[in-house]
């Protein structure tokens, strides 16, 4: 039994999500190989080779994988899959885009966003916005799986010394090409791996007002997130959205400000260790999951919080 894990990276460095996927792969058991598909990404493969518990790194360095277009990357995975019992990736924009395409080409029913491993063929995943947990069993010869990073403790990034082996590219499909990207730049930690997250909702009233949260975030070394309503209203960009159809986070501390606590939002943050809610409506559902609830006007409470943190 050997697992192949698709490494999440930006051609420069391994993203931490991969370390969590490896923890799931270890639970499944067997050897673990990593696949680095990208362009000019030798540094990523070298970094990946040092991750604890990895026995081999496959490096597919080719223009076809520069931006991990699904058409080309899935084709590569399909070419490699016959050697593996499990192919895994993180439930990220890339994992979600690429893996189902590979699964269909392999005639396999993918198991999406697992949060538990019961055995090599049985997995736990959430359905209905986290309202239910399903245990599912797969009889497919290759198991194609995406893994919810927050559900598994990361393995150590160092301690291993795997060999890096170049694999030949599977070819350019010519179906799609990369035009460009607008990625937000931030000095703050990434939302999905931050130790503390502070999120704002419709109650923030404007994008300007999110600067209040930025100030608190800077004091705490936190990432800033948002509800769908805040994103839809244009206060903050799409990548801030936490929830069923946004990002899943599970930090040590999650602070929800002016967020009512709709089930779709809770689905993205209710596994946080400590939850704080600041809301002026004492009946807001967010208080049902909050460890510490403060019924207050956020326009008073947030600046006060920033002050208190300076002390």
């Amino acid at each position: 039994m050997t697992n192949l894990v698709l490494v999440e990276h930006d051609n420069a460095a391994v993203k931490s999500a991969t370390l969590h996927v490896l923890a799931a792969a270890q639970k499944i058991g067997g050897e673990i190989h990593l696949l680095v598909a990208g362009q000019n990404c030798r540094a990523v493969a070298d970094e990946a080779a040092k991750i604890a518990g990895v026995s081999k790194v496959l490096l597919a360095d080719d223009a076809a994988y520069a931006n991990r277009l699904a058409e080309n990357t899935a084709k590569l995975i399909v070419a490699l899959a016959p050697n593996y019992s499990h192919v895994l990736a993180a439930t990220t924009a890339t994992g979600k885009n690429v893996m189902p395409r590979a699964a269909a080409l392999l005639d396999v029913q993918q198991i999406s966003d697992i949060s538990g491993v019961e055995s090599a063929d049985t997995f736990v995943r959430t359905i209905y916005a986290g309202n239910a947990l399903a245990t599912v069993q797969s009889a497919d010869t290759v198991k194609v799986i995406t893994v919810r990073p927050t559900a598994f403790e990361a393995v150590a990034a160092t301690g291993g010394s795997a060999a890096v082996e170049a694999v030949s590219a599977a070819g350019e499909t010519g179906l799609a090409s990369f035009v460009g990207q607008e990625l937000s730049k931030s000095e703050r930690p990434e939302l999905t791996s931050a130790r503390i997250v502070i999120s704002g909702g419709r109650g923030m009233q404007s994008g300007e007002n999110f600067h209040m949260l930025d100030k608190v975030a800077d004091k705490l070394g936190a990432a800033v997130g948002a509800s769908r309503a805040a994103v839809d209203a244009g206060f903050v960009p799409n990548e801030y959205q936490v929830g069923q159809t946004g990002k899943i986070v599970a930090p040590e501390l999650y602070i929800a400000v002016g967020i009512s606590g709709a089930i779709q939002h809770l689905a993205g943050m209710k596994d946080s260790k400590v939850i704080v809610a600041i809301n002026k409506d004492e009946d807001a559902p967010i208080f049902q999951v909050a460890d510490y609830g403060l019924v207050a006007d956020l326009f008073q409470a947030v600046p006060e919080l920033e002050q208190a943190l300076s002390k």
Partner: peptide
Amino acid sequence: EVDGGLETIQA
């Protein structure tokens, strides 16, 4: 809509 922001492809 991708994790870091927006990406445009031509298909």
